[in-house]
Design a binder for these strands. Sequence first.
DNA 1: CACCATGTTCCTTG
DNA 2: CCAAGGAACATGGT
Length: 283
Amino acid sequence: MPELPEVEVLVHHLQPVIAGKRIRAVQVNRVKILQPTSLSAFKRALQGATFRNLSRRGKYMVFELSAPSSRKKFAVLGHLGMTGKMYVQKKKATLPKHAAVVLDLGAERFVFEDTRYFGRMTLDTSALAHLGPEPLGKEFTAAYFAGQLQKSRQPIKVKLLDQSLVAGIGNIYASEALFLAGIAPSRPADSLTRVEQRDLVRAIRKTIAAAIRLGSTVPLNFGPDPSDALFYFGRHPDAVDYYEESLRVYDRAGKPCINCGSAIQRVVQGARSTFFCPACQKS
DNA sequence: CACCATGTTCCTTG
DNA sequence: CCAAGGAACATGGT
């Protein structure tokens, strides 16, 4: 489930696993994943390079590497799309069916698996320039938020998915944050009161921070071959869906609101599902 | 077979 | 040029 919190948890776990590792060979099974970078340019850059650091910006992963001899640093941008996973496994482990990119690290291999191939692993970092502030950063203030919302008549739920407004909110946490703030998803962005703007900033921060905390409690070393796979996220076979159950409205259509018992509703906005409580969220 | 899915980009339309 | 809406991308689950 790659929204900001899932990417954050993955980056936290993956960073120490790949730092200092040198790439011996580059295998690309789906060139589309690299675009707009060409296969040859990607291979040329990564072959022999060493992972130095890994960080996150919005839903993007920023890999910093150093070139073989020159030690010159460069960046690779990663995005998990809808179904992407990145992990390191032993080389004797079976490669997944949809391994888009495989990097030989010696005894281990780095795998970017992506069933639907909506993800990216590319030398083009220009997407970062279009991102709004980090929701947990100090630049995401009520004043900034108010200024941006005033310029738009889009439904607030749709506006929250705009990565240039605030980076990292996806379809799940947009519904969750609006529920926490008590604001109906259909409200035009420019109709929020000053108090609602402030409440929504707080709700976004709280929702994202709580998800990161929860994700951090889920062990990532599981999967088809638990001993040697590091998944970006998921659920431990013994840990019973703890993460999923923490969602208050998302995917709970027809079920009782945890506050008032009313049936949670599902509506479609901008071709995506939105979940909300018609009683608790003010229209 | 139908519909749904955590994301982004591109194309139309106004 | 901008805003808004929707399809497209590709595969799998229910």
